[in-house]
Every structure is written in C-alpha cells, then in structure tokens.
C-alpha cells in the first residue's frame, strides 16, 4: 500500500534511458512513502533488461516475457494485474509516446487519477503533489491529488539516471495475458527523415521555427545558411506545415543534433525541441520574446525582430 510500481520501457532491443530515470523517481517516492520500489520489465529480452536495471534502490523486478516489442494491450493488462497483486500507492510510467499509449488506459481501468508529464513529485503524508507545466511551458503548476492510489507519467530527462549497483529480487510474473483482448497489431517500423541531407552531421545549423510566419520567408533563412556555409534545419511547426521536409526536423520526434554552432531563429524552445539540440556546443537564439525558454539554454541572444536581424546578419557575411 506504500509501494511504488514503475513500468520500464525498451524499444528494438534496447532499454530506453527513461527506464533508469523511473528508478530514481520511483525510489524518491517510495522513500517518501516508506515503501518498496518494484519495477516491471515487459516483453523483449526481459532477463537481460532486468540485469541492467538491477540498480541501487530497486527492491523487486517483475519480468513478463511476452512478445518482443511494446504492445499497449499487453502493457495495459500486465500493469493492471501487477497493480492488483502489489496494491502500490503509485504506478509510475514514462511520459513517452508509448507511455501515453497505455498509461491512461491503466489509470482508467483501475479507477486511479492520472497526472501526466510530471517534472517533480513528492508525498506529504498521503497527498501527492506533482509539478507540471501548462501553456507550452509558460507556467509551472502544482497539482495535488486527493487519492491514495495514483498513476503518474514522468517527463524524460527530468530525473537523473539511477547509477549504483543493487541486488533486487528478480521474479517472473505470470500475467495470464488474455489474447482475445490484444486487439492491435504492430506490423513494423519505419525510419523517417532520410534523404538528401543529414542534419546530424552538420557543424553549423541555422534552424528556423514558427516565428518565420510564412512559407515564403523560409528563403531568408536559407540565404543566411548559405552565407554562413551552414545547413538548414527546423522545428516541428515548419515541418508540420510542409515548408521543409521531415529530414530537417530537430527535436524529440525528429533528429538529435550536436553541432558546434546552432542558430535558433524564431524558435521558442519547447521542451520537445530542446531535447534534440541541447547538446550543441554553442547555441545562439534570435527571438523577440525575452521570456522564450530558448534563452534558458542559449549562450548568445538577440531579443529583436528576426526580420530586422537576419538581413543584417546576412549583410555581415556577404
């Protein structure tokens, strides 16, 4: 009743980093509650994954060897049954595309309140207080949950990865999967964003975002990229609009890039974008909103209208 059950994630044979972050977050909450931390490893090479996840702070790892890849019907069923068995206070999941494909179903089936995309969490007695953002990261909020049993998804990259070696009990869980309730079929994977250019190889990227307003203005940043000998990339809205191809997209659902210089033009710096470019050595932001989150990670900034600054910058290099 005071335990935490964290559901780990893997994809195509590899544990995802967020699995180790779930261990850290789960341990913190279990300490608040004075309970144990249970991990679940579902599908794929469960023994190998359980070995890797035997980190300090983990009490028990439950393995369910069923299928290879993520299937939301299997994850939902297994999590539901483990929760019935362990009666944990918190079911902790990752706020990833797959986490959001089964987490809400688990919460609804078990009648637990759900808090998603959490960036901080703690218990005061039996009340969970979660920190999460709203309005595209413009504000942070604290949310209190008035239930002793909750489901939470944590945002990747907010907790450290658990490090030290541990010695958890590893046990096979018989989930007795109801195959008739497995109703979606994964038929394959597809890599997107191939093509003429690999932005992850570029040393200098000129990257354009929503602030460019119109498709015809893309030319302006193309001209800058040319003047700087740089490669052109973009944030999600530009690709969604079809103004640049998918292989130019930087961010969580696009490419991760680590250029020497990254020049963000009209990009606000939403968390999904930052996830793909925070490894750049030098980050330059040109954005007229001084509160834009891009300035949190920028090394240099110009808080001004990009339609004035970019032509002036092109002139400098011509």
């Amino acid at each position: 009743m005071s335990d935490v059950l964290a559901i780990t994630e893997h994809r195509r044979g590899e544990l995802r980093d967020v699995s180790y972050e779930l261990v850290s977050a789960g341990r913190e909450l279990a300490d608040d509650l004075g309970g144990d931390l249970h991990l679940a490893v579902i599908s794929g090479q469960v023994e190998e994954f359980a070995g890797s996840l035997s980190r300090e702070g983990v009490d028990t790892i439950h393995t369910v060897s069923e299928g290879e890849e993520f299937n939301h019907d299997i994850y939902t069923q297994v999590t539901e049954r483990l929760a019935d068995e362990l009666d944990p206070s918190v079911i902790l999941m990752a706020n990833t595309v797959n986490g959001l494909d089964y987490g809400p179903a688990v919460a609804t089936r078990l009648g637990r309140p759900l808090v998603t995309d959490v960036i901080g969490a703690s218990f005061d007695g039996e009340t969970l207080t979660a920190t999460r953002e709203m309005y595209g990261s413009k504000v942070e909020t604290r949310v209190e949950v008035g239930s002793e049993e909750v489901a939470v998804t944590i945002r990747p990259g907010e907790w450290p990865e658990a490090n030290g070696n541990g010695n958890p009990e590893i046990t096979e869980f018989d989930a007795a999967i109801d195959e008739s309730a497995v109703r979606s079929t994964v038929t394959g994977f597809e890599e997107v964003g191939g093509g003429d250019v690999d932005i992850s190889d570029a040393e200098v990227l000129v990257s354009v975002g929503r602030g460019i307003d119109e498709e015809e203005n893309i030319e302006l940043v193309e001209e800058l990229a040319k003047a700087l000998g740089a490669t052109l990339s973009a944030s999600r809205p530009i690709v969604d609009n079809g103004w640049l191809p998918k292989n130019r997209q930087v961010g969580q659902s696009g490419k991760s890039v680590t250029p020497e210089v990254y020049i963000a033009i009209g990009i606000s710096g939403a968390v999904q974008h930052v996830a793909g470019m925070k490894g750049a050595e030098t980050i330059v932001a040109i954005n007229d909103d001084p509160n834009a989150p891009i300035y949190d990670i920028a090394d240099y900034g110009i808080v001004d209208d990009l339609f004035d600054v970019v032509p002036a910058l092109i002139a400098e290099f011509e």
Binding site: V115, E140, T141, R142, V143, E144, V145, A298, D304
Partner: peptide, 22 residues
Amino acid sequence: LELTEMYEPEVESDATVFEGSA
C-alpha cells in the same frame, strides 16, 4: 486533481544578450 499553485518558472538564462540596433 486540484491545481494549488501556478507560477512563472525561474529563468536560468546566462546568455550574453546583445543590445542595440539590428
């Protein structure tokens, strides 16, 4: 779920911001 607090996140910017005309 009850929203109990809302605030602007602290900006941790240490960017060098250039001032002046474009």
